[in-house]
């Protein structure tokens, strides 16, 4: 295979030129879905499938990148050097996760620059939970245990997403996330077993992050118009409410090990439906925060924008240097 792609493409036109080709593409796509197999970047795929994936993967990537900020907020004040190292590694991992995911989204034809542009322009969404402030050290524990815990519940099924690059990125992310959740749990455990002020700090954090972390799974199923299509496309494997219920169950068990409590008296296991139930959530607040009225929306975006703008001259310098060296090597050759 010494031909380049263009040549290959011209031998066997890969662009459906007619309705017939589109029908063949659709048929093949449907076959892949029915087989629960994987779609790869150069396969034919429906416009809407591609758009959905770009939106979901880029939002996911943005969430990782914006999600660095609330935790980076405590790197400089971590109360022990061991915790400082762990937190630094964790926040750094999140940058890595964002990069894996941007790469996956790029295979769909949208460049990272473009996605980043949409983010800093305030046109892209990210997980709204990161618009809440981290006000105490215990928030590092709650984020690790609850927010990362919820993320893992969401992400493990995504390892089997029908789009190959997304699934592969998620495999890598999930492997790394498991340390994130455990370190969060340990932070809370240490606090819960510490002095009364520490224990109170831990309980406060659990109280504050509980509802937002449950809302990370998205709106209730009857108010989630896109879910059905995503499930039909084998991108999403479980509904929002299914995942949320599973998550509540895990929290309810684990919180006892911590010696803390969930701020929701209605959490219970329903023997009839065999699912975990929880009290009502304030979806109005969720929508407000999503719409940009959370405590930290403006701050988070400004910080990202500033890092991006401040780095402009550095990126330009590296690009210019690469061009100069390439020209030099060419001249020498």
């Amino acid at each position: 295979m010494a031909q380049n792609l263009q040549a290959v493409g011209s031998v066997t036109p890969s662009q459906p030129q007619s309705q017939l080709d589109a029908d063949a593409g659709q048929a093949y796509f449907d076959h892949v879905m029915a087989e629960d197999s994987r779609i790869e970047p150069r396969d034919w795929m429906p416009d809407a499938y591609r758009r959905t994936l770009v939106r979901q993967i880029s939002q996911h990537a943005h969430s990782e990148i914006i999600g660095m900020q609330p935790e980076a907020n405590w790197i400089s004040r971590a109360p022990s050097l061991k915790r400082k190292a762990i937190l630094m590694a964790k926040v750094q991992d999140e940058a890595g996760h964002g990069l894996y995911l941007y790469s996956a989204a790029e295979t769909l034809g949208t460049s990272r620059d473009e996605m980043m542009g949409q983010l800093v322009a305030g046109k892209a969404r990210y997980s709204s939970i990161f618009n809440y402030p981290t006000v105490t050290w215990a928030d590092m524990g709650a984020i690790g245990w609850m927010v990362d815990g919820a993320a893992i519940c969401n992400q493990v099924p995504l390892c089997r997403a029908s789009y190959g690059p997304y699934g592969r990125a998620m495999v890598r992310v999930c492997k790394e996330e498991s340390f994130h959740q455990r370190q969060g749990f340990e932070i809370l455990l240490e606090l819960a077993n510490g002095n009364p002020a520490q224990k109170q700090m831990a309980q406060d954090a659990v109280n504050r992050w509980y509802a937002p972390s449950l809302m990370m799974f998205g709106p209730p199923d009857d108010d989630s118009p896109n879910s059905k299509q995503s499930m039909a496309w084998n991108i999403k494997r479980f509904s929002n409410d299914e995942l949320r219920s599973r998550f509540v169950g895990m929290m309810a068990e684990q919180v006892r090990v911590l010696g803390l409590s969930l701020p929701d008296p209605e959490v219970r296991f329903n023997e009839d439906t065999k699912t975990w139930e929880h009290g009502p959530l304030d979806w109005e607040e969720f929508k407000q925060v999503l719409a940009g009225r959370g405590p930290c929306n403006a701050q988070r975006l400004e910080r990202r924008r500033q890092a991006h703008d401040d780095g402009g001259w550095v990126r330009e310098a590296a690009t210019a240097y690469a061009a100069k060296m390439a020209a030099k090597n060419e001249a020498a050759a």
């Binding site: 970047p41 416009d47 769909l108 460049s111």
Partner: peptide, 28 residues
């Protein structure tokens, strides 16, 4: 940048610019 600013449509899979993972046909 040769890339259209909107999300590429599904009808042109092999043109996906800037693509990664080797799956994607680059521009010349």
């Amino acid at each position: 940048n040769p890339q259209p600013s909107q999300v590429p449509t599904g009808s042109q899979p092999s043109q996906a610019q800037a693509g990664s993972l080797a799956g994607v046909g680059p521009q010349t």
